[in-house]
């Protein structure tokens, strides 16, 4: 019996050793309501690949719009941006932290590294470590997350606000997560 305990103990130590770098708890996925689930099922591939005019303009091997169209494109995209009813562009950074990591919400780690504790981050987008120390323009951050195409035509960064993946309040929370001095991004 004792032998087994020792064996078990050593295995536990072994099992824990590589995870000493603490990982933030995975964001809790909001359970989809039965109704939402049904709605999700309803769409077909054909419906989902229907494009809006901007998506159509971006669908080419160059991956951007022609030079003479850029100004108009940006202007049209800027019109799509909505702001929180209370006017606050900086929300709760702790909520923002969850939203940033949640694969069904911000899913920002897919492309950006930010909190050094999150190791599984992509390298398609720029590293956001110490973002708040480099960037002070909160409105720019909010608008960029809401609609990245209002700044870079056909950017790979998806238009979280335009497509309703994030609400204006949620975008304000992520903005706070990026700017707040207390946030792990800037610590």
């Amino acid at each position: 019996m004792k032998n087994y305990l020792v064996l078990l103990g050593s295995m536990v130590v072994f099992a824990c050793a590589p995870t000493q770098q603490e990982k933030p708890k995975p964001a809790e996925l909001p359970k989809p309501t039965p109704q939402a689930k049904q709605e999700e099922k309803k769409t077909t591939f054909e419906e989902d690949i229907k494009q809006d005019p901007a998506q159509k303009m971006c669908s080419n091997p160059q991956g951007t719009v022609s030079a003479d169209m850029v100004a108009k494109f940006l202007e049209e995209q800027k019109k799509l941006i909505k702001y929180p009813p209370n006017g606050k562009l900086v929300g709760d950074w702790k909520k923002g932290e969850q939203l940033f990591a949640n694969p069904r919400k911000g899913n920002c780690y897919a492309c950006h590294c930010a909190d050094p504790k999150e190791l599984a981050c992509g390298n398609i987008g720029p590293i956001l470590r110490h973002y708040g120390k480099r960037q002070s323009d909160v409105k720019y951050t909010y608008e960029k997350i809401y609609n990245s195409w209002a700044y870079v035509p056909c950017s790979i960064m998806y238009r979280a606000g335009v497509h309703g993946i994030l609400t204006p309040e949620e975008i304000a929370d992520i903005t706070a997560y990026l700017h707040s001095p207390e946030s792990p991004v800037n610590k």
Partner: peptide, 22 residues
């Protein structure tokens, strides 16, 4: 470029091919 993520195959597998998502 389609869907809620505004993605195309080309974006990941031409433009940013060789880089990582997560």
């Amino acid at each position: 470029r389609v869907g809620k993520m505004d993605f195309s195959c080309a974006i990941c597998h031409d433009t940013f091919g060789g880089q990582r998502i997560r």
